[in-house]
């Protein structure tokens, strides 16, 4: 009995081994997909209607701006940044108020998040994609007075034109804080502040660590890009300016 089993095992092993193959040579290359390779017509024709529809929608004129605006135009605050932060409050606040019966006190975005300038002339859907190519959405973060002060400290020490709205900061000639007002009043210690921002900054983007200590967070389920598109749609002419929201005394 034992020997039969042994014989059977060998047979099985041998037949298995005969059938099996193994890699003996492997070669690897990388093919650059460049114009030397012709485009396949059937794929091109399949894509075309999708591409045409996107082009048409991207070129739709939503508003007009008489002046070009770039984030490097001015120091501390810029026309384009002011427009973006103001838009977040203008469009975001009614939604936030309807859901929570509270109001947004201030809005804060980041300088690095302005991904493109805007040329003078027509503002199109493409403009919104250019300034905000990412899928980030608007969140309203409830901050304690202490964390709100940290937010201000952050802006004071950065001295970069991070877009904000609802807040006015003045630096003295040494670059230290002279005054900070939220909606024209000093930061109070007996209330929290509702700050509209993006989910990217909420998660610690650009080292805005004060958002990590949020008292509460409300997701508006509203992409920033769509908010800008809707803002452009309700304004025929967009003509933001650099203003006094972030300034430094000369002496």
């Amino acid at each position: 009995m034992k020997s039969v089993l042994f014989f059977a095992t060998i047979l099985l092993f041998v037949s298995c081994k005969d059938a099996k193959v193994e890699p003996v040579k492997i070669s690897g290359q990388q093919i650059n997909i460049n114009p030397e390779i012709e485009k396949n017509d059937s794929i091109e024709n399949f894509i075309k209607p999708y591409r045409d529809k996107i082009e048409a929608e991207m070129n739709e004129v939503l508003a007009f701006t008489p002046e070009s605006m770039f984030k490097t135009d001015t120091d501390l605050n810029t026309a384009i940044g002011n427009m973006m932060a103001d838009a977040v409050i203008e469009i975001g606040d009614p939604i936030f108020h309807e859901r929570t019966n509270k109001n947004i006190d201030l809005a804060l975005l980041n300088f690095g998040g302005i991904r493109s300038g805007i040329n003078a002339g027509d503002i199109t859907t493409r403009t919104a994609f250019n300034i905000m190519p990412f899928e980030n959405e608007v969140v309203v973060v409830e901050l304690s007075p202490d964390q709100t002060k940290k937010l201000i400290d952050y802006l004071v020490s950065a001295k970069i034109a991070h877009p904000f709205s609802g807040l006015k900061i003045e630096l003295n000639s040494d670059g230290n804080l002279q005054s900070a007002l939220v909606n024209n009043e000093q930061i109070r210690n007996d209330r929290n502040y509702f700050v509209a921002t993006s989910d990217y900054l909420l998660k610690g983007g650009d080292n805005m660590t004060f958002f990590e200590n949020a008292e509460s967070v409300e997701y508006l389920n509203y992409k920033l890009r769509n908010l800008f598109i809707d803002y452009f749609k309700v304004h025929d002419t967009i003509a933001p300016i650099q203003d006094k929201r972030f300034t430094q005394r000369k002496n």
Partner: peptide
């Protein structure tokens, strides 16, 4: 790019 690996 496209990667290409041939196994023999």
């Amino acid at each position: 790019n496209l990667g290409r690996i041939d196994f023999y």
